[in-house]
Write a protein that binds this DNA or RNA. Structure first.
Length: 505
RNA sequence: GAUCUCGUAGCUCAGCUGGUAGAGCACAUCACUUUUAAUGAUGGGGUCUUGGGUUCGAAUCCCAACGGGAUCACCA
C-alpha cells in the first residue's frame, strides 16, 4: 500500500497520541448539548448569553487559523459549521501545556473529529463562535481532506471532478455542503409523497425484487441464479404486476417505492438501478389519476422548494395544477403538421421516412408512433403536460379507450422534455389481457427484444376479478432532479453506478 | 456498444513548436493570545493513469489498454 507523505505523517501522529495515553478512537459517547446551526441561529449576545454559557458540541475540523498561543478553527457537525476559539491558557489552566502545544497544535489535523465544551461569544469581526474550555479527540483522520476555501460565498479550489465526487461520495459530502442539501431535499420529497398518499389511506407495501418472470415494463433485465432452487431469477424491471395482484387481493390503494433494475445503457438520466413510485387505486380511472398527479406534484414542489415555480437549468417550470392535456396524435400533428391518426402501418412507415426517422421491420405501428413522438415532440414539452390516449399496441397492460377505437386510456406526464410518469386505466379484463400478452409474443417472434413475457400467474389473478383500477409509475430520480435542479441522475443518487476503479489510479 | 474529449503533488490547476517537472492551498519547522481564502519566513512532497512505439532525448508526438465526461444508440 503506497502512502503519501501526508498519510505517513498522520500515522506517526497517531502513534504519538497513543504514546501520550490518548485514545484516538474512544468508545464512550460524547455528550452534545447543541448543534452548530442552533447556536448560530439562536445566540443573541449578552441578552441570552447565559443560555449558552456551557455548551458542548462535536464535529470535524475543517480549517485552522493558528495565531500562536491561540487559534481559530472551524468544525462541521451534522447541521453545519461553527467557529471555535481555542486559547492555550484556557484549555491548559495549569503549568502543563501539552494539550495545547503538542496535542492540539501538532497532533490534530483538518479532518479529525473533536468534541469541545465552552461558552458562546461574538468575535471582534462579529462571528458567533465558541470559546473552548475543554477539548477531546473523538476520531483521527488518516487521509487528508481536499481543502475548499471560501470567501464572500465564493469557493476556491472546489472539488468538482465528477469521478472523485461519485466514487468518494463521503468526501464529496464533507467538502461540498450543497451536496448534502440535494439529498436532504430528495428525502423531503419522498416524505411529502408518503404523507400525501398516506393521507389518502394508501398502504405502503413491499413486493419481490427477485422475480421469475420480469414483467410490467418493456426492458432488458438483469439475470441471476438461485442456487438452492436451481432456477434463474430476474431483478425486477417493474413492480406493476405485483401491485395489481394486491388490488385483486382486496387492497384498494397500494403504493411502493420500487427499486428497479434495467440492463441497458447509462447516461445522465439513466442509472442501472433507479426508483419508481407506483401506486394503484381501485374504482378510479386515468382522469382521476391526472388530477391526483398534478395535485401531488404541486405539493411536492412546495414541500421541497417552498413554491410551485422552479428553476431547472435555464428554464422556469410551473408545477401549479392543472396541467395541459393533449392526445399523442394531436401532439404529433402540432409538431409535424401530419395527421397520423388514421394511418395504417405502411403509411406511418412512409411518414417516418419523410421525417428522417429510421425504422426497422420489427417495428409495429405503435412503436413507430412512439419514435415520431420521441424525436419530434417530447423535447418541446417543458411545462408539465399530459400526453394522453396512446395506440393500443404499445400499451399491453392498459384498458381500451371507452370511446376512441384503437386507443387506450393512458397518459404520460412530460416535464422538461422528459417522461416523468406513465399511467393508465388498468386493463382488468383477463381475456383481453391474455390476448395482449399473445400479441407481445408475436412481437417477440418478430424480433422485438423488449416485448413482454406472458405471466400466467398474473392472468390467473385477473381471472379472480380485479376492480376497475387506475395506476401510475413515477420516475422518482427524475423528479428529484427537477426538484433539486440537477442535470445528472448521478447527482441525485448517493452512489451512482461506476466502472470498477482503475487499480493504477 | 460507437464517436469526440480529458487523466500532472492530498486538492485546484500551469507546463508553448519534444530538452531531466511548476504554482496556490494542504503538509513539515519557526514566529504571532480575536482570526476568517489569517499573515510572515523556511522546507519536504511526483512511477506526469498504465503498457508499447518514434526519437540522442517524451508529461508533451503516435498506438493500445484502463478510468472520467460529453454526444449518439437503448431506455425511465
Amino acid at each position: 500500500m503506497h502512502l503519501s507523505e501526508q498519510e505517513i505523517i498522520r500515522r506517526e501522529k497517531l502513534q504519538e497520541l497513543t504514546q501520550l495515553g490518548i485514545d484516538a478512537y474512544p468508545a464512550a459517547l460524547f455528550p452534545i448539548t447543541h448543534s452548530s446551526t442552533f447556536i448560530k441561529e439562536n445566540y443573541k449576545g449578552p441578552e441570552n448569553a447565559a443560555d449558552f454559557a456551557d455548551v458542548s458540541i462535536a464535529g470535524r475540523i475543517m480549517s485552522v487559523r493558528d495565531m500562536g498561543k491561540a487559534n481559530f478553527c472551524v468544525i462541521q457537525d451534522g447541521a453545519g459549521r461553527i467557529q471555535l476559539y481555542i486559547k492555550r491558557d484556557d484549555i491548559c489552566t495549569g503549568e502543563d501545556k501539552t494539550l495545547y502545544d503538542i496535542v492540539w497544535k501538532k497532533l490534530l489535523d483538518i479532518g479529525d473529529f473533536i468534541g469541545i465544551k465552552g461558552y458562546v461569544f461574538t468575535t471582534k469581526t462579529g462571528e458567533t463562535s465558541i470559546h473552548v474550555k475543554d477539548l477531546t479527540l473523538l476520531s483521527k483522520a488518516l487521509r487528508p481532506l481536499p481543502i475548499v476555501k471560501e470567501k464572500d460565498g465564493e469557493s476556491f479550489d472546489e472539488v468538482t471532478d465528477p469521478e472523485f465526487r461519485y466514487r468518494q461520495r463521503y468526501a464529496d459530502l464533507i467538502v461540498n455542503p450543497g451536496v448534502k442539501d440535494t439529498f436532504i431535499k430528495r428525502t423531503k420529497m419522498m416524505n411529502c409523497i408518503r404523507a400525501y398518499l398516506n393521507d389518502m389511506n394508501a398502504l405502503e407495501v413491499e413486493t419481490p425484487v427477485l422475480q421469475s418472470i420480469p414483467g410490467g415494463a418493456a426492458a432488458r433485465p438483469f439475470i441471476t441464479h438461485h442456487n438452492a432452487l436451481d432456477m434463474p431469477l430476474y431483478l425486477r424491471i417493474a413492480n406493476e404486476l405485483y401491485l395489481k395482484r394486491l388490488i385483486v387481493g382486496g387492497f384498494d390503494f397500494v403504493y411502493e417505492f420500487s427499486r428497479n433494475f434495467r440492463n441497458e445503457g447509462m447516461d445522465r438520466t439513466h442509472n442501472p438501478e433507479f426508483t419508481i413510485l407506483e401506486f394503484y387505486v381501485a374504482y378510479k380511472d386515468y382522469f382521476w389519476m391526472m388530477e391526483t398527479t398534478e395535485n401531488l406534484l404541486e405539493q411536492v414542489a412546495i414541500a421541497t422548494n417552498g413554491q410551485t415555480k422552479l428553476t431547472v437549468g435555464e428554464k422556469e417550470i410551473e408545477f401549479k395544477a392543472p396541467y395541459k392535456r393533449i392526445s399523442i396524435y394531436d401532439a404529433i400533428l402540432e409538431h409535424t403538421g401530419i395527421d397520423v391518426s388514421n394511418m395504417n402501418e405502411d403509411e406511418i412507415r412512409t411518414t417516418c421516412n419523410t421525417l428522417h426517422i429510421p425504422t426497422e421491420k420489427s417495428m409495429g405501428r405503435a412503436k413507430m408512433l412512439d419514435e415520431i413522438f420521441g424525436t419530434m415532440c417530447e423535447a418541446n414539452y417543458v411545462q408539465p403536460t399530459f400526453i394522453i390516449d396512446y395506440p393500443i399496441e404499445m400499451s399491453p397492460l392498459t384498458k381500451k379507450h371507452r370511446s376512441k377505437p384503437g386507443l387506450v386510456e393512458r397518459f404520460e406526464l412530460i416535464v422538461n422534455g422528459k417522461e416523468l410518469a406513465n399511467a393508465y386505466t388498468e386493463l382488468n379484463d383477463p381475456i383481453d389481457q391474455r390476448e395482449r400478452f399473445e400479441e407481445q409474443t408475436k412481437l417477440m417472434e418478430r424480433g422485438d427484444d423488449e416485448a413482454m413475457f406472458i405471466d400466467q400467474d398474473f392472468l390467473r389473478a385477473l381471472e379472480y376479478g380485479m376492480p376497475p383500477t387506475s395506476g401510475i409509475g413515477f420516475g422518482i430520480d427524475r423528479l428529484a432532479m427537477l426538484m433539486t435542479n440537477q442535470l445528472s441522475i448521478q447527482d441525485v443518487l448517493f452512489f451512482p453506478q461506476m466502472r470498477a476503479e482503475n487499480p493504477n489510479s
